[in-house]
Amino acid sequence: MKQVGKYKLYSMDEALDKHFGAIGTPERDEHERRVADAVHAYHIGEAIKRARLEQNLTQEQLGERVGVQKAQISRIERGYSITIPTMRRVFKALGFTTASLELGGALGKIPLW
């Protein structure tokens, strides 16, 4: 904490420690997992948006192809409300014929569709 006049300034690490606990505690680990999940969902949404725009599709047009409303496509592109089955339908509607999950090691790749 740093005092600047009458204000107290905390670093991001200090704020996280205060609200979620120190690194390695269950609460902090859960917070870090939720943040990582949100970042991954955001990147998937951005990839979907990029592919949609490259094909000159509106959210409504993509929604029609997928069988969902425009609002659902908007949520997906912002990193919300996406499940593996929905992701599969969206990517197929965009023309991606295959996708796989890279697990590494002896597990290798698992085809998603």
Rank of each mutant, 00 (worst) to 15 (best):
R34F: 07
T97P: 04
G63N: 05
V90S: 06
L62W: 01
D37T: 03
R78T: 08
R65G: 01
R89L: 14
G105W: 02
G105M: 05
P26V: 07
A22Q: 07
Q59W: 04
Q72K: 14
G79R: 00
G67Y: 03
M87W: 10
L94F: 03
Y42W: 05
G95M: 02
F91I: 02
R65W: 06
S81Q: 11
Q59G: 15
E30N: 04
R50Y: 09
T25S: 14
T25Q: 06
E46Y: 00
A51L: 03
R65S: 08
Q72I: 15
E64I: 04
M12F: 14
L62K: 02
S11H: 03
A93G: 14
E60Q: 10
F96Q: 07
R50D: 12
H43T: 03
K49A: 10
G63P: 06
L62G: 00
E64K: 08
F91H: 01
R75N: 15
S11I: 00
G21A: 06
P85H: 05
R33T: 14
P26C: 11
L53R: 09
G105T: 06
E46T: 04
A15M: 10
I73F: 09
Q61W: 09
L103E: 05
R89V: 00
I82Q: 15
K92I: 07
A22V: 04
A36N: 09
K92T: 12
R75P: 08
G67P: 03
L107I: 03
I23H: 03
Y42L: 04
V90K: 00
K8H: 09
V90L: 02
G79Q: 02
D29R: 12
K8L: 06
E64D: 15
R65I: 01
F20H: 06
L94T: 12
A36I: 13
K92P: 01
A51F: 11
H40Q: 12
P26S: 11
R75S: 13
L101W: 10
G67F: 09
A106C: 01
D29E: 15
A22P: 03
A93L: 00
F20Y: 13
E27I: 06
I44N: 02
G67A: 04
K8Y: 13
I23Y: 08
T58Y: 10
A47W: 01
L107Y: 04
V90Y: 09
R89C: 10
G104I: 01
A47M: 01
G21F: 05
R78W: 05
E54D: 15
S74A: 12
K92N: 09
L16E: 12
L9T: 06
V68D: 08
V39M: 12
E77P: 04
T83R: 06
F96R: 05
T98P: 02
I44D: 02
I73R: 05
F20C: 00
T58P: 04
E14Q: 08
L101C: 11
L94P: 07
E60R: 10
G21L: 06
A93T: 13
Y10N: 13
D17H: 01
D37Y: 11
M12A: 15
G104T: 02
L16Q: 14
R28I: 13
S74R: 08
A41P: 09
R34S: 11
H40V: 12
A106M: 00
Q72L: 10
E14S: 06
